[in-house]
Design a protein around this nucleic acid. Structure first.
Lengths: 191, 191
DNA sequence: GGAAAAAAATAAAGTAGTTTAAGAAATTAG
DNA sequence: CTAATTTCTTAAACTACTTTATTTTTTTCC
């Protein structure tokens, strides 16, 4: 819980009364490695805040190939907001890449949270703004960078994830095959 | 102004007093075809709501190639939120593809708006949520669809834009060269 | 309304990234 | 600790898309 409070505290100041209130909205939950937090086709019941561990969000295309959309580690929010807010079936799956502890919040509680602690609305807006900015930069990368450039950028921005996440998942995130990533890495070592 | 009020009204109910208040925050502005609303390297002073016309947001990569990130037509918000909120230099340019009328709002007014009309915060959050969802689906497309599939999807979802926007800009938005789009179209006609 | 400029089409040669396949290395599980 | 499974590597053939260059069509603008 402290991790979330600390994160929120970076954006808004909460009174100690509100901190107590806030705690009641979230449930702590542990997921085993390989366990699913959300299954393609179901309706997303929770948004997740990662306390410890690592999650991947992916889709499966018509050929059965998986594509990783994002990773979430400590202090990241994840979930399918389209499915969560509109209560429509999700096209994503979310899976734990390690044993992962999260704080989760249901839709009913989420909506109540905004009523009970209006300041939380500001925090949520900033989170969505940041997500929008991050995603835009990813769209740009996919449009204008080569695979090698994207890999080097990922390496520079998320060196910790490179060690933590299997290469095949990183390749999928970068939009290339594991074979090609392996080739790229080999080429970069013997540059 | 009515277009914006109508758009807001789809998400939140405003009292007539608030409607009057709201009007004071926005300035109507007309841009000529080819005119720039935002220049790469400058600091974004406004967010824009398109009343009539069409805008494109693009970046220029290190080779000098332009990449269209998004188009905005009637009832769309556009701008560089990273630059606008953090007052940092933008990496985008926004240009009018037609004579375009917008409502624009400065950062000071934007912040004041949330204080004076707190309900507006809900509207803004929903806008960012929608932007996040839309962008996520674009990331997925770039990862998992071929150029032909992306073009057909664009054709299905935005038939109006196809007629309105020069092909070279659509090619750039889809992440392909104008030559390849031309070839695809030819192939699709003679399927 | 006609010259100039911009956009679109066509085509051939080139390249970044995929596919397939098979072996080596690392991880997992009983 | 060992067998089974998963992940990573290497390499050759292949394909989706780019590059370059030329011609045709459309749009702009005085």
């Amino acid at each position: 819980m402290n991790r979330l409070l600390q994160h929120i505290n970076q954006h808004i100041k909460l009174s100690s009364g509100n901190i107590e209130k806030l705690k009641k909205f979230f449930t702590i939950k542990s997921y085993k490695k390989k366990e699913y937090l959300l299954h393609f086709g179901s309706i997303s019941r929770y948004e997740f805040f990662v306390i410890k561990g690592c999650l991947r969000t992916f889709i499966v295309d018509k050929n059965g190939t998986e594509h990783n959309i994002m990773f979430a580690t400590e202090n990241w929010w994840t979930g399918d907001i389209a499915s969560f807010f509109n209560q429509t079936p999700t096209s994503y799956s979310i899976q734990a890449l390690e044993k992962t502890d999260v704080l989760q919040i249901s839709k009913e509680k989420w909506e109540n949270l905004f009523i009970q602690i209006p300041e939380f609305g500001h925090y949520a807006r900033v989170m969505f703004q940041n997500a929008t900015v991050a995603q835009q930069s990813r769209i740009i990368q996919n449009l204008s960078y080569t695979a090698e450039e994207r890999y080097l950028d990922f390496l520079a921005k998320s060196p910790n994830l490179i060690q933590r996440i299997p290469q095949k998942h990183i390749a999928s995130y970068l939009g290339i095959t594991p074979e090609f990533l392996s080739m790229l890495r080999n080429k970069l070592v013997h540059n």
